[in-house]
Structures are given as C-alpha cells and as structure tokens.
Amino acid sequence: MGAGHGHRLHFHGHSPVHRAPAHLKLLALVAFMLLVVATPRDWYPVFAAHLAVLLSVILVSRVPLRYLLPRMVIEVPFLLFALLVPFVAHGPQVEVLGVEVSEPGLLAAFALVVKGSLGVLASLTLAATTEPDEVLRGLQRLRMPALIVSIMGFMVRYLDVVTGDLARMTTAMRSRGCDPRSPRHWPTLARSLGALFIRSYERGERVHLAMLSRGYDGALPDLRRTP
C-alpha cells in the first residue's frame, strides 16, 4: 500500500533529458510556454518551430510518442470548448464545409488548440522525464518557500496512500450495492468522503507526532537523493 511512490506519468529512462537538473527543466518549461502563449495567433511558421523544438526534446528523451499521446486526453473537455468557438464568436463569417462560421473565431480556436496542446505535451514531457522528488528538489533550488515545498512533498508521499484509501472505500460501497454515480447515493458518498477527511487528518496528526519523536523542529532536513 505504501509502495509505488513514483507517479503514474513517469517514464523510466536515462536520457540527457531525464538526467538534466529539475530546476533547469522547470525554468525551460515556463520560458517555453510563455513564449508559446505570447506568440501572435497567425504566426503559423513559429508554431511549427515550437512544435519542432518540443518534438526534438521528446526525441532526445526517448519517451515514445505513443506513451505521451494517449495521455493528452486530459485536454479533451477543453478541445470541445475550442470546437464551439467558431460558432459563437462574432466577426465576418466564412463558409467552411458548407457551414457559416466566424473567421476570427476560427483563427482563435486554432490558436487555442495549438497553444493548449503544446502546453499539455510540454508538461507531459516534464512529468514523464522527472521523478516527483526531483521536481521538489528543483522547486527548492528555485527558492520556492520551504513550507510549500514540504506540503507538496507530503502530498506526493501520501497521494497513493489516500487515493488507495478512497479506492478501497469505493470498492466496499460498490460491493454493498452503492452506485457512486447516482445522486440517490450522494449521502453515502459524502459520508465516506467525510470519513476520508477524518482518516487523512488523523494520519496527518500521527505523522506529525512520529516526526516530533524523531527530532522534528519545524524545518525539514534537506531533501536528499534517495538511493
């Protein structure tokens, strides 16, 4: 139950991208995405250049595209929104495939999809090539407040434990005939969420006591590289 602290997106590897210091990767991601977001929407060749840069990084990292692409489904709700834009936007109308749509809307939707997808692919590349511990160390190096880094560290550490708790509770409810999707069972669902809160909070108290008994004085020791 405590095993597998690696997260679901990490793709094990030893490429230069995997080995690069996490703080540089974080800075590169933010700089790259700011550049992408600031690119005017009709500079098509520049978008192609952005994509080429990103794809070459992925190529060097040796993370297969067929690993990354299915994980881009996270942006599907947003793509649906982008599909709607040409129909609701104002401006001169053009006819595409026999349907009247707004021309600026079409352009805006194109930019939304391209920028959003570049963002998701770039973030996926970071997540696939960087262990969560490395991300934490990178944030520490970038002078993120220590409290934020340690809260994030606890979250990364207990993510699988708490979601495991939730999964077992859901299994127990389902095996007793509860359908978590039906609003009729919301009271049951909410009680189990309440129980999950109490379990998480009490786990936090026990972790704190365990830390105190090991000499915790309000500051975490440096995040050392675990062998």
């Binding site: 434990v161 979601t163 909070y201």
Partner: peptide, 9 residues
C-alpha cells in the same frame, strides 16, 4: 506541513 499536506491529498 504534515497537516496541510494530508488535507491537500
């Protein structure tokens, strides 16, 4: 740190 971490989770 531990409490907020667990509540965030």
């Amino acid at each position: 740190a531990p409490m907020a971490g667990l509540v965030a989770t």
